[in-house]
Amino acid sequence: MSGDIWVLAEQWRGRISEITYEILALGRDLADEAGVRLEAVLVGSHVRGLADTLGTADSVLLIDHPLLAEPVTPTYADVLAPLLADRSPAAFLVPLTNISLGIGTLLAGELRLPAVNFCRDAHFVDRRLRATCVLYGGKIEAEVTPRGGATAILGIWPHARPPEKGHSKRLPGVEEIAASPDAAPAIRFRRYINPPAGDVDLTKQEALVAVGRGMRSKENLELAEALARGIGGAVCASRPVVDQHWLPLSRQVGKSGLTVKPKLYFALGISGAPEHVEGMRKSDCIIAVNTDPQAPIFNVANYGVVGDALELLPVLTRAVEGRKRAGGGAG
């Protein structure tokens, strides 16, 4: 048991994901608390150059192999498992992203290690690791501790720390780890399909009117379109709205969709699940309308309204139009 803290340094298509730096910052805090080393584990093909950006870690364990060019979940888990079993760090921090999803639990299942999912923070308390987890769609927080002395696999939500804290100009030491991935695995990467260009570029909008399942039906989206027209913005959506085919994928905000930073984000009938919030929390001003006073969206909003979005929308749109007319603006 080395007692060190490890971070899975996620890279995708030649770039280190931003969440990697966030988790490096968290890992740095943990390693400093415990007085142990922080190691970043980088897996891929021709990714040696990326290791130099991981200087927040004391060193980088590099698994570089042509068969690891794309993130095939079981293949990545297979090459990580023997390393983890051999070196037994105190904890292995794995990002909760679409790219890395499943790697942590596969390692835990394979090696019979404790897994703590949905972590937003972690500390050592009396030398025992303790994680703060956000679960049940963001409504509940739990303090969780792994049992026994084995390596704990922690799945970490985005935004555990500001990414800037995980950047460093220091060059980390790099240890190359030999691996021989299965050349004919049961799951094999074929190709990427880029999204069709959307009708609007959400990332360029000053104002977004975001609709969630609380809008109830496709017909009701017209109410949001009217407000968006009034304030010169566009309509975007949470995942269920896109899954119901009410709006195309190009309008989805969140983990699998786009990350947006408009001046104003108007969240209507959106609960504020962590996967949605990670795509919009950096908006300058967030207004949330939700019938549920406990909705987690109010945790990130600047202004909140507990009420029915369907009732508020037409009144608000009329008020906006009225104000424009009163001001004599052309809109």
Partner: peptide
């Protein structure tokens, strides 16, 4: 393999007006 020490409802942050 893991132990829940405490669970609580997340208090809405004071941020929202």
């Amino acid at each position: 393999l893991i132990e829940v020490l405490r669970m609580r409802r997340r208090a809405p942050a004071a941020r929202a007006e």
